[in-house]
Write a protein that binds this DNA or RNA. Structure first.
Lengths: 150, 150
DNA sequence: CGGTTTACGTCAATATATTGACATAAATCG
DNA sequence: CGATTTATGTCAATATATTGACGTAAACCG
């Protein structure tokens, strides 16, 4: 019986926590290696990605989506501004917010960066079928939801 | 048909990458909140945990297991030393390594910290059955393996 | 309406982490 | 054996991130 079934561990919650951390660390490392030739860091890429998804977004909102403080996001944005990749509107809006946008040069650079990052992500999930990717998504979502409630 | 089946997404590799990061960030945040009353940070807890698992381990090895540089681990260890939680052997071994060990006081503190952290991990996996935890473990391991090969 | 709360952006101080370099001594290998 | 490689610890400089605080103005609500 159980032919072809691989022996599989019976993980404790703590082991799963460690594994989540280890997986993320490895993914981050690979993304960093993939982005380095383009002169971008992972946080910078994440910032550009969020700005592509929602142009004119505020710095504080970017900070939330990147899981960093708004102060950190501000210095990150300053770096991207200095590099000519983002442009922040002076004389800002009703809530003192300064809308940030990508420059044209940034958009073409981001296209390359996104290719590199997506390749890493595909590599990560190369051994998984469609049903397994769906399952992983559902399981991680359940974990996140459990950690989010009240 | 499909009664009782919840609509489930068909995630791209990139979405899974973002989700891994988001899950880890949330887990880290909850661990931080759980450890703060004890005066410990997550990296400090991880360090103590590794020292419990393998007493006399070297600083560089601790750095590898925590996914940080050995320089960072060194300042972290200095902080733990100053707090009287770890003790490093002077006049060290054959490879210039200084074995680090927990003090008795640290062991009782770690017991409390581990309780708090394990509770967070259990909360994270509260909605998962045994089979689902095993599946999540297998899927994350597959992702890590795919990112590790050559 | 008027007081309170919330939200952005920013300044300052500090903590944390990384990169680069160096000395040292063991391990490796031709 | 002798030369090269590897590994640890450490110093210095720098980058990155956090906490705390402040001013401001919109949103909220009794």
């Amino acid at each position: 019986m159980n032919e072809g079934m691989r022996t599989s561990h019976d993980p404790s919650p703590g082991e799963l926590g460690v594994l989540v951390k280890a997986t993320q660390a490895l993914l981050n490392q690979r993304m960093d290696e993939a982005l380095r030739p383009l002169g971008l860091t992972v946080p910078q890429y994440a910032c550009l990605s969020n700005l592509i998804d929602e142009p004119g977004i505020t710095s504080s909102e970017l900070a939330r989506r990147s899981f960093v403080s708004r102060q950190s996001m501000n210095v990150l944005l300053q770096g991207l501004e200095r590099a000519g990749l983002v442009q922040r509107s002076e004389q800002p809006g009703q809530r003192r917010e300064k809308a940030a946008q990508l420059t044209g040069r940034a958009e073409s650079l981001f296209a390359q960066a996104d290719n590199a990052v997506q390749a890493v992500a595909r590599r990560m999930t190369a051994g998984l079928g469609k049903a397994q990717r769906t399952e992983l998504f559902a399981l991680l979502t359940a974990c996140g939801d459990a950690l989010s409630e009240e």
